[in-house]
Design a protein around this nucleic acid. Structure first.
Length: 197
DNA sequence: CAAGTGATTAGC
DNA sequence: CTAATCACTTGC
């Protein structure tokens, strides 16, 4: 399967891309070249300047948020709560700081590697949250800025994509964002058991 | 339900 | 410089 092309990330609306990412395959080859992959089951859109929940709200530009201003199709990885990395996809044109947080995936290839990284626990719990999937995929700060058209991490069409209904709701963990906290910018595959709680 | 954990940020 | 906060997870 081919990697999604640059224009997928730059030539449409962030909210639309957040929906389209569902059902696609997130792929990270490990050092052996062995693939670790999962079907994207849950995403959240963060909309640049106006979104009070976004790190780039009001054009805030710091060392951390700098990569959000890059051209779409690169990774934005940040560290939070002293323990967890969050994997985001930057979208839009250069200078437009939009991003999509990948909140959950359904393990596909390399499940043994994921189990090893996450330790003993039910498979249902391997990648059912943004911090968990970063651990399972071995995503850390060094992935920040990685080109999704490169060799480090990418997204491709899923071969046996079973059509599923997409539903939306409010985003989680952003109670500080006032009226933006309730906007329906979180999307997931209906009934998928890997969607975070 | 609450603690843990440390980078990041805003505010002196 | 210091202190508060945080796009979460786990274990009590």
């Amino acid at each position: 399967m081919d990697k999604l092309a640059r224009k997928f990330y730059t030539c449409s609306d962030t909210v639309l891309i957040a929906r389209e990412l569902l059902g696609k395959l997130l792929v990270v080859p490990d050092f052996d070249g062995k693939r670790v992959s999962g079907i994207i089951a849950e995403t959240e859109a963060y909309l640049g300047l106006e979104d009070k929940a976004a790190h780039s709200h009001l054009g805030r530009r710091t060392k951390r948020t700098e990569i959000m201003y890059a051209k779409g199709g690169v990774a934005y990885v940040f560290f939070v709560y002293g323990m967890y990395f969050q994997f985001n996809v930057v979208t839009g044109d250069e200078g437009s700081p939009h991003a999509i947080l990948i909140r959950a995936v359904e393990p596909c290839e390399g499940i043994d590697i994921m189990r090893k990284r996450r330790g003993t626990m039910p498979d249902k719990n391997l990648t059912s949250g943004p911090g968990k999937l970063a651990i399972a995929f071995g995503i850390d700060k060094s992935f920040n800025g990685a080109d999704l058209c490169g060799e480090r991490v990418w997204i491709e069409e899923s071969a046996n994509q079973t059509p599923a209904e997409i539903v939306c709701g409010s985003r989680v963990g952003i109670d500080y964002a006032e009226e933006w906290a309730e906007k329906p910018l979180r999307f997931w595959l209906k009934g998928n058991s890997f969607v975070s709680k």
